[in-house]
Design a protein around this nucleic acid. Structure first.
Lengths: 337, 337
DNA sequence: ATAGTTTCCGTAAACGTTTACGGTCGTTGC
DNA sequence: GCAACGACCGTAAACGTTTACGGAAACTAT
């Protein structure tokens, strides 16, 4: 089935009527509509995307931009897949489709996004892996395309965002460790210019300050957001003449490697060093069990979708959610700290 | 910058010339082309996707279909993101864009694909998570849209595929275990109707057969493709009055949970039970170290892209790769088996 | 100078939809 | 019996591109 023309000819009806029937417009005889729908179903006709969006000026596609490569900045892909599933439960109600806009590791994210939105590929966009200063915000703002971000940035154009509560994690982690008597506390700052690292470390610093404890510069460990990154940090810690008695981190991909590196150095989490980290499907089986933060990825996805829709004129009235919010994290107590 | 019309007016040139200049056609004065390119760059003009693909009949988009949800069928974390990165290195050379077509866990994959291809969303498609009998193959074949699959299926319409060498893994794993003296060998069959499970288990059965060993039905463990799935299998194994002395599996997401479950039961891999599995970024830090198979995901991505291009008339001549091949796996020897 | 050739560019049609507009009926109200 | 109206449908324009076609210059060769 090539196009609406064939379908119309086949039914001996004009294409206008066919289109109206398929799109649920009022001006069409119920009986005719029925015939059209059945024929479309039988012949497998679906309106061509290009023709449709050219005429309508919108595509019905929501893009979620993410970067590909072996090191997913900040998250693993089961993270995103779960979030996507949540997003889709909401979008499906409006016949909107979610696609992942994949920016290769060898392409500049700003240029990629520029290209993609200028082409008019998606009606709205969700950004992730937000950097400290992120030109993408201004770009989307200039193009007046509805968007939100999973993550904050210093660059602020007034768009809504949802972000994990990195400051909250910092506070709870630091308070907990201080309460347990730790005075020499280290933190892991994921490599790169992701905003979350700044948020977490700065809050750790200030919370410790209120307890009269200084976060020493050499206790801020830089680690690539990967298992190997965690391993490297562990080795670095182990090599120190005097090491911190506790470590806090917010990137779940680091945890496994960190555990392993420490273990190899004879350092046992929870005994020789306290660890407060992030949970993920992979961390639930660590030993000693991890004390760390968790969240519902599915619910996060739902919230993202609702917030995005509230930015889109066509759907705004149905969704008047919070425009900006920090996503609550649950602390799961384990043996590690 | 709205459209080519504005750009043309701004330059006082016809839209035809502008289009030719931008698309690198021959019939245009180098100087004019230069002016057009500069103006487009300055004004941020990029051809509208819908208009372009409506006229050209192709979109310049390659779709990689995958299912969302907490349980990525068959593969773990950064698997896809690494593969994508490889695919993109090839596609970028032809100005083709890769997007992930995300099928929600609550939508039927066949219906989703039907809808997506009928809309003419992508020029070509890569399928993953292939089922034992997969209607998607026939669907794409009917629509005459170029596609390949990462994974085989009993359903065969003659399209190229690349698949991990599950039979090869079965052979090496079984031979290795038999050589080590194991007579009571178990295998883990990932839940669901994924074809890879069949391939692996059947080959294990036949290899063992050549050694006069029978793969007992109760030694075929069914596990969800997730960490929790591996954990559940471990518990099942531990509860057995007499358990197999070795376990082989091909799903890397199961490994972590399997280790943990065994450990809790006082069963040490490599000592009390031999394990041959799959490596991933997460498994490199297991203890005892895992004996398992690994592969270059980036190279796999490159191969996928090249094979797909060889299916597309416009690019065929440049890529005459193998149409169907099994992807070689490297055994990394560890202490587990 | 003329004819032929090349280089460049403008014109207009086409891609497949959606939708504003208007027209044709049959029905209703008086 | 006539006007008004509503229900339904066909027509055609528009969306933003690309590209076949043809034409106008500017060269080249005779």
């Amino acid at each position: 089935m090539k196009g609406i023309r064939q379908l119309a000819d086949h039914l001996d009806i004009s294409i206008g009527t066919v289109s109206r029937a398929l799109n649920g417009k009022a001006d069409v005889n119920p009986q005719t509509r029925q015939r059209v729908l059945e024929a479309a179903e039988k012949l497998g006709y679906v309106a061509n995307q290009s023709g449709r969006s050219l005429r309508k000026g919108s595509t019905g596609v929501i893009g979620f931009m993410m970067q590909t490569g072996p090191e997913i900045t900040g998250q693993g892909d089961s993270f995103f897949m779960s979030v996507f599933d949540g997003v889709q439960t909401v979008l499906a109600r409006h016949d909107l489709d979610l696609v992942a806009l994949l920016c290769s590791s060898s392409e500049d994210p700003d240029a990629y996004l520029q290209r993609t939105v200028a082409r008019g590929f998606a009606d709205a966009i969700i950004l992730s892996a937000t950097r400290r200063n992120d030109a993408r915000f201004e770009l989307l703002d200039r193009h007046k395309i509805p968007f939100i971000s999973l993550g904050r940035s210093l660059t602020d154009v007034g768009q809504p965002w949802i972000d994990l509560d990195f400051e909250g994690m910092a506070e709870i982690a630091m308070e907990r460790l201080v309460l347990a008597g730790h005075k020499d506390i280290g933190v892991i700052w994921p490599h790169g210019d992701l905003n979350l690292g700044h948020l977490f470390v700065e809050r750790c610093r200030s919370v410790l300050g209120t307890h009269g404890i200084r976060l020493r510069e050499e206790n801020i460990f830089r680690g690539k957001p990967s298992e190997a990154g965690g391993y490297a940090v562990a080795k670095e810690i182990a090599a120190r003449p005097s090491r911190p008695s506790a470590i806090a981190l917010v990137n779940e991909t680091l945890v496994t490697g960190l555990y392993k590196g420490l273990e190899e150095a004879g350092i046992t989490p929870g005994k020789d060093i306290a660890i407060v980290g992030r949970h993920s499907p992979h961390t639930q089986f660590l030993s000693p069990t991890l004390t760390g933060f968790n969240l519902s990825l599915h619910d996060l996805g739902i919230a993202l979708a609702e917030t995005l829709l509230s930015e889109m004129p066509a759907y705004r009235q149905a969704y008047e959610g919070l425009r900006r919010r920090v996503w609550p994290m649950m602390l799961i107590e384990g043996a590690s700290g």
